[in-house]
Each structure stands twice: as structure tokens, then as C-alpha cells.
């Protein structure tokens, strides 16, 4: 395996990338679950090659109000890793972690848009933002360390950068990095969560094209 050609990826390569998502997100999910002491499941990872105009739609629509924590990756793998949740879900998660107001989304309120909007409008405190950053740190660490031991590549991540805004606006940042090298973005996307408790979110691993080649080569492909 020499060069990865985005348009000519074979099934084997897709399978391997999906498995990387599986292992990475599996570890991250376990770390998250232990941290908030709540059951977290994950769905089968999706490996998607997207046109830029499709990118902003992946996390529930371009205007969806989400929390995004972004890490830039370094050493053997370049690119970005992003952790995204709907803002209401991140509110719920921070409450679980800090042990406050655990009933922010109780049974009756689940379908009540007003309540969701109220939660959306409420600003996070410094303490809550710092807790969310720490959640981001720990799960990105878990994801990347499993990827690193699988591939024997050295992978470091930056400090977490956080934004709470429209999903499309947040996703424009990794999309622009991809835009410098091509007309499509390849990402490994894993949805995780406690789906009964509206706690779901996404891990996105977005390596550069060269780094995909590095990953596949390290695995003997």
C-alpha cells in the first residue's frame, strides 16, 4: 500500500478504518462511562467520504446547537479529532459529572421543545466548561492511545479547544483543513451515548490524507 486514493478506496481499507473507529471509540466510550458512572453505548462507526457541501449536515443538521471540542494531532499523524454533542446533551453530561440537577431531562420533558430550548439557552459556568474540557481530554486520550498502540505510531494531541455554536460553523474548521488538499473530506464518525437519556454525541477522527496512508501502512496494508 503506497498512496491512498480517496476515490478508489477498496472495501478492505474501509473495513480497517471502521475497525480503527471501533477500537478508538470503544476505549473512549469506556472512559466516558466510568467518568460519569452511567451506561454508554456506541453505534457501528461510519467511514465517510463526503463532499464539502454534505459535511455540515452530519451531526443533526448545520444549524443544530452543539458543543465541539477539537484537538489537533501531531507527530506521526496529522489532522484533527473532534468530540461533538448537542448542547442539551452536554448540559446533561456535565450535570452527571458534577452531580448536580440530574433531572435536567426527565421523562416528561423529553419531547418538550421548550425545555430543550431553555437548556440550550442557559450558559455554562466556568466550572462546567472546565469539566467539559476535561471530559474531552480524557476521551480523546483514550481514543488516541488505543489508536497509537494499535498502529505503533506516535500520536500526540493539542490542548482541547472548545466552541458551542451551530454544527456547520464548527465543522467548517476541519473542513477548511481538508479543503487545502482536496475536494472531499474523509472522516471516521462514531455515534455514542446513552440513547434513553438523550446523552448522545459523536467522535470524529479526521486525519489528513498522508496520515491515512501512514495508518494503513503501519497495519501492513
Amino acid at each position: 500500500m503506497s498512496e491512498l486514493n480517496l476515490n478508489g478506496m477498496d472495501n478492505m481499507q474501509y473495513d480497517v478504518l471502521r475497525e480503527i473507529g471501533n477500537i478508538g471509540a470503544g476505549n473512549a466510550t469506556t472512559a466516558l462511562s466510568q467518568m460519569i458512572n452511567s451506561k454508554i453505548d456506541m453505534k457501528v462507526p461510519k467511514v465517510e467520504l463526503l463532499e464539502f457541501r454534505e459535511v455540515s449536515e452530519i451531526v443533526g443538521g448545520a444549524e443544530n446547537n452543539v458543543l465541539g471540542i477539537l484537538f489537533t494531532l501531531g507527530v506521526d499523524i496529522d489532522g484533527m479529532m473532534m468530540f461533538m454533542m448537542e448542547k442539551s446533551a452536554s448540559r446533561h453530561m456535565v450535570n452527571l459529572l458534577l452531580g448536580e440537577g440530574q433531572d435536567t431531562l426527565d421523562e416528561d420533558d423529553k419531547d418538550n421543545n421548550n425545555t430543550k430550548k431553555e437548556i440550550d439557552d442557559k450558559e455554562f459556568t466556568e466550572m462546567e466548561l472546565s469539566a467539559l474540557n476535561e471530559i474531552g481530554n480524557i476521551i480523546a486520550g483514550a481514543y488516541l492511545s488505543s489508536l497509537s498502540s494499535l498502529t505503533n505510531l506516535t500520536i500526540t494531541s493539542s490542548i482541547p479547544y472548545m466552541a458551542i455554536d451551530m454544527a456547520g460553523a464548527i465543522l467548517s474548521v476541519p473542513a477548511i483543513e481538508f479543503g487545502k488538499i482536496g475536494d472531499k473530506a474523509l472522516m471516521i464518525e462514531t455515534e455514542f451515548g446513552n440513547f434513553e437519556k438523550a446523552l448522545n454525541g459523536y467522535f470524529l477522527l479526521i486525519p489528513t490524507l498522508d496520515s491515512y496512508t501512514a495508518i494503513l501502512t503501519s497495519l501492513g496494508l
Binding site: 454544527a167 456547520g168 464548527i170 465543522l171 467548517s172 477548511i176
Partner: peptide
């Protein structure tokens, strides 16, 4: 592109 009465929109502009 469009001609009135149609309109144009783009959702979630970030750094673009």
C-alpha cells in the same frame, strides 16, 4: 443563483 421571488440561504457559516 436565483431570481426573485426565490431566495438563497446557507446554514451555519463558520470561518467560511
Amino acid at each position: 443563483v436565483c431570481i426573485t421571488p426565490d431566495a438563497l440561504t446557507t446554514l451555519g457559516l463558520g470561518s467560511c
